[in-house]
Design a protein around this nucleic acid. Structure first.
Lengths: 189, 189
DNA sequence: ACTCTCCTAGGTCATTCGTCCTAATCGTGC
DNA sequence: GCACGATTAGGACGAATGACCTAGGAGAGT
C-alpha cells in the first residue's frame, strides 16, 4: 500500500469518527481499528492526535472548497446557488439529526477544549461565509453581502442544532422553506 | 458541612466545568479539585459520572424554569418577555463567545456520545420552546405559536454557534436587533 | 544477491480515567 | 462521655489513553 493512500485512508476514517463521536472521544485505537492498521504503523503516519486533527481540517477545507466550486460552476443564478447551500440541511438530514453540523460541532468542541486548531476549524465557516457573500454580491447586495451571508450561516447552524435535539424532519423542512422564501425576498434591490 | 450543601457545591462546580470544558473532557478529579474535595469523598455523593450529569441537568432545568417564571412575573407584555429571552445573547455574550450556548453544546456532545441523558438534556430546549410558545399564544398567534417558538430558538442557537466561531460582538448585536425587529413584525394578526 | 529506503507490526511507557474500598473523623442524641 | 450513623480522606484497581521504540518485512534499484 502506498503511503499516500494509507495516509488518506486514515484521514478519511478520522474525519468520519471525529464527526460521529467527536474529537476527544475518538482515540488512536478507534481510528487504527477503523482502517485495519496497527497502532504502531499508525504512529508512523501521524505522530500526534493534533496532527491528525490538522489533516482532517485540511481535508474538510479542501472538500468544502471543491463543493462550493461545483455549485458555482454551471449556469445557475446566485440565488439558485444559495439554495444549493440551504438544501444541504435536507440532503444531510439524517446525519445532521444524529451528529449535528460537522463544522459547528467541531468548532464548539475545540472552543471548549481551548484547542490551538480552533482558528483553523473556523476557517471552514469562513469558506462558506465568503462564498455566500460573493453570491449576495452577485445579486446586487454589495453593501450588506457579508451580513446576509452571516445571517444565512446563522440560520443553518440554528436549524442543525435543533434538528439534533428534536429530530423533527418537519421542522427542518419548514425552516428550509422559510429560508428560501427569505432568500427570494432579498432578491430585488 | 451538610451533605446537601456539599452535593450542591459539587453540582454547581460540575455545571460550570461541563459548560466550560465539556462533559467528556471534565474528569472526576477536575470537579473534586474545584470543590476542594477528595475523590473518595466525592464518590460518597455521586457513584458515577452519569449520576453527576443527571444532577447537573436537573439543576439546569430548575434554574431555567425559575428564570422563565421571573420573566413571566411582573406586568410585561408577551413581546417584552420574549425580548428578555432574546437578550440573553447579549447578557451572556462573553461566555457564549468562549463556550457557546450551554444547552446547545451539551445536547450536541451527548448526541455524539450517544448518551442516555440525551433525552433529558433536550428537555432544556423544551422548557424554552414551551415558554416561548405560550408567549406567542398570548400575542394571539395560537395557530403557529410552536413554530414561532422553534424559529426563535433556532435563531438564538445559530447566533450562539457563530458567536463562538467568530467572536464578533457586532454580529451578535446585529442579529439580536434583527430578531427584535422580526418579533415586532409578528406582533399584529 | 544485496542494500537501502519505505512501511508495518507489536510491545512498552507513564499517565489518567472511572470506579471502588477501607479506615478515620465528625456531629448529634442518649 | 459514649455510641452510632453521617461524612470524609486517601489509597488501589484495571482499563484505556497518547506517545514512543525497535525489530523486521516489502520492494525497487544496483
Amino acid at each position: 500500500m502506498n503511503a499516500v493512500n494509507t495516509r488518506q485512508h486514515i484521514v478519511e476514517a478520522a474525519d468520519r469518527l471525529f464527526y460521529e463521536q467527536g474529537f476527544e472521544a475518538t482515540s488512536f485505537a478507534h481510528i487504527a481499528e477503523a482502517v485495519q492498521l496497527s497502532r504502531g504503523n499508525f504512529y508512523y503516519h501521524f505522530r500526534s492526535k493534533d496532527e491528525i486533527l490538522d489533516a482532517v481540517i485540511a481535508r474538510r477545507l479542501s472538500n468544502t472548497a471543491a463543493m462550493l466550486e461545483t455549485w458555482e460552476a454551471g449556469n445557475k443564478t446566485p440565488s439558485e446557488r444559495i439554495q444549493s447551500f440551504i438544501h444541504i440541511l435536507i440532503t444531510n438530514q439524517t446525519k445532521i439529526m444524529a451528529y449535528g453540523c460537522p463544522v459547528g460541532t467541531l468548532c464548539n468542541e475545540l472552543a471548549k477544549l481551548d484547542h490551538v486548531a480552533q482558528t483553523d476549524a473556523s476557517k471552514l465557516f469562513t469558506l462558506f461565509r465568503d462564498w455566500l457573500a460573493r453570491q449576495f454580491e452577485a445579486m446586487g447586495r454589495d453593501a450588506d453581502a457579508d451580513a446576509l451571508a452571516m445571517h444565512l450561516l446563522m440560520r443553518s447552524q440554528g436549524v442543525a442544532a435543533l434538528a439534533t435535539a428534536f429530530r423533527d424532519e418537519h421542522f427542518i423542512r419548514r425552516e428550509v422553506d422559510d429560508m428560501c422564501q427569505w432568500l427570494q425576498s432579498q432578491q430585488p434591490l
